[in-house]
């Protein structure tokens, strides 16, 4: 190989490659899936057009929102605080469980095949059962109210956050881990002194992201009776008080935006 050559035209670039048969096949399968989905969900523009009347009267009932302090706004704010509390506890109380499972389920820190497989399966299970389903189960166990919501979030969030944390650990720089191996550190010591300190900013970032998601999830949990402002929204719909519902939704909007901004702000601050 020589890098010094006579001046002259460079060789012509290779010809363009057309999309392969695989690409065409993928597109065809995707198109077919959309046709099936359109039929399977009864997607109908005519039904939507006919329904506009109902929508309009619904909006008419909802506007203007009922901002009465005693009966609507104050209870709404109190319930919004409960929603926030559910999201907070649902996130923080799952930290120890998620951490232990993540360490066991990350290939770079796992203890052995059995506990690795067990932790992986448990995390998948907790993740694949929706938090609403856990809420319905806990409502029957501990009764209606925010406590059931907290339990549901703790359980589901352990699954999601444990998986995200395990992935972050697996993607951590292998260098510090090798250094630990050379100096004879055990697996636990390697996790504590090489992996966790290196990925801490990522773990905190994911924690804040989950807090954000969990506050929104706790709204939905309220709809099935697990306390918070979701419960009030459900009630106002049942009583056809759409003007009160509109107030609750505005409060929710403010809450969600505030939490979103706050967690984005902190995440920017701790970025590695």
């Amino acid at each position: 190989m020589t890098l010094i050559r006579e001046p002259g035209p460079a060789p012509a670039p290779p010809g363009r490659r057309l999309p392969s048969a695989t690409v065409w096949l993928t597109l065809a399968v995707l198109a077919a899936a959309h046709v099936l989905a359109w039929q399977g969900t009864g997607f109908s523009l005519t039904a939507l057009a006919q329904g506009w009347r109902g929508m309009a009267s619904f909006l008419g009932d909802a506007l203007p929102p009922d901002f009465d302090w005693e009966t609507v706004l104050q209870p709404s704010l109190k319930a919004a605080a409960v929603t926030l509390y559910i999201g907070l506890l649902g996130t923080t109380l799952s930290i120890p469980f998620a951490l232990v499972l993540a360490v066991l389920a990350a290939r770079v820190t796992a203890y052995g095949t059995t506990s690795y497989q067990a932790a992986r399966s448990l995390l998948s299970f907790l993740r694949s059962v929706p938090d609403v389903v856990f809420a319905l189960i806990f409502v029957t166990a501990v009764g209606l109210g925010p406590f059931a919501g907290v339990l549901a979030l703790v359980v589901h969030n352990t699954g999601v956050m444990g998986k995200l944390w395990a992935e972050a650990m697996e993607e951590s720089d292998p260098g510090p881990r090798e250094a630990m191996r050379v100096l004879g550190a055990s697996r636990l010591q390697t996790a504590l002194h090489a992996v966790l300190p290196t990925v801490l900013p990522q773990l905190v970032g994911l924690l804040l992201y989950r807090f954000d998601v969990n506050v929104r999830a706790s709204l939905v949990l309220g709809l099935v009776g697990a306390g918070g402002i979701g419960f009030l929204i459900n009630q106002s719909i049942k009583l056809f008080r759409f003007d009160q519902m509109a107030t609750h939704i505005l409060v929710v909007l403010v809450l969600v935006i505030a939490v979103d901004q706050l967690s984005a702000l902190i995440r920017r601050r701790i970025a590695p």
Partner: peptide, 20 residues
């Protein structure tokens, strides 16, 4: 590529040599 834990102090990094 040195492989220290950047957020820990120099001293803590050195102490890790004794983990075993």
């Amino acid at each position: 590529k040195i492989h220290l834990v950047g957020r820990r102090s120099a001293l803590d990094n050195v102490c890790a040599g004794a983990l075993a």
